[in-house]
Simulated assay, not measured.
Amino acid sequence: MPDMGGERGDAAGPTTQGLAAKAAPSSLRRFLGWCVHAYTASGLIAAAIMASLLLEGGPAAYRWCFLLMAIATIVDATDGTFARMVRIKEAVPSFDGRRLDDIVDFLNYTFLPILLIGRAGLVPPGTEAWLVVAMLASLYGFCQVDIKTPDGYFLGFPSLWNVVALYLYVLPVPPWAALAIVLALALFTFVPSKYLYPSQPGMLNVVSTVLGAIWVVPLGWLLWSLPSDVPPRDDPRVVRLALVSFLYPLYYIAASWVVTAIHWSRPRRAA
C-alpha cells in the first residue's frame, strides 16, 4: 500500500502454478524477472536523491522532490503490470517482490513526503515531532493484512502523503490547519472507511481511473510550474493551477466517503 498498479505477482491458476513449481524458469524469464525487480528498486534511487535534496532545503530542492515523487508513483503504477507479464513468482521464486515494493512505497509515499512537510516549515515551529504520528499510522496501515478489501477498496486512509504534502506546500494553508489535516488523516488510517482503489474492477474505480488520467495533465503542469526561487503560495498563477488540479483529490475523498457511508448504513438497514 499504495500499490497503484495492483498486487504484484502472477495470475496463474492452481494447475499452472503446480506445473511451474516442477519446472525451473528459463534463463530469459529469470533475467526478465530480475529486470522487473530492478525497475521496482529504481524507486530507491529516487528516494535517495529526494533525501539529499531535503537536506539541502529550499524551493528549488522541494520542486525536484515533488517531480521525483511523481516519477516514483509512475514506477509503482506500472511495475505490477510488468510483474504479471513475466509471471514474477515463477520467474524469481526466491525473491519477494511485494516486500521490496512495500519498502519503496513506504519511503516514497510516507517517510519522505512527511519529512518534507516538516522540513519545508508547513506546520508550526516546534510541532514537527507530531508528524511521527502520521508515520506510525502509515506503518500500521502498511502492515495490515486486510488493508485491501475483497470488493476492491483500500481500508482506511491509504497513505497518499505525497499528494498531501504537495497541496499543503502549494496552497496557502495556515500551519496549524496543516498540522490538523495531517493528524486527522493519520487518525483515518485506523477508521474502517473505504477508499477508492482505481486499478481494481468496478464502475466507480473505472470512472476514477479515467478522471485520474485527466488529472495527470493539470498535475503535471503544476509540478513543472513550481517556482525554484520562491514558495509557490506566493505565486497566484501556481495557486490557481493547484486549485484546479485539487478537484480530483476532492472527488476521490468525497466518492470514498459516499461508498463508506453506504457500507456503514447496510447493517442498520438489515436490522
Rank of each mutant, 00 (worst) to 15 (best):
Y251G: 02
S208C: 12
F106A: 05
V133N: 00
G43H: 04
P267M: 09
V164R: 01
I117V: 15
I117P: 05
F111I: 10
W176Q: 14
L226T: 04
G57P: 10
T127G: 03
R119L: 11
L204C: 07
F82E: 06
W215K: 01
I71F: 10
V86C: 01
A83K: 04
A83L: 05
L166M: 01
S256A: 00
I71S: 07
A255R: 00
N205Y: 13
R240W: 15
V258I: 14
W161R: 11
G121V: 13
S138G: 02
F95L: 03
A47T: 06
P218K: 05
A70G: 10
Y39C: 08
M1Q: 04
R237K: 10
M85N: 08
D102A: 10
Q144G: 08
A61Q: 12
A137S: 08
F66I: 09
D146P: 03
I71V: 15
I114A: 04
N108F: 05
L241S: 05
A134M: 04
F246E: 00
A46S: 15
K194F: 11
L250Y: 06
W224Y: 15
V230K: 07
D151E: 15
K89G: 07
R237S: 13
Q200I: 05
I71C: 08
Y197V: 06
P124M: 10
W215N: 03
T189M: 03
W64M: 01
P201H: 13
L100C: 06
Y252M: 05
N205H: 09
I103P: 00
M135N: 07
L211D: 02
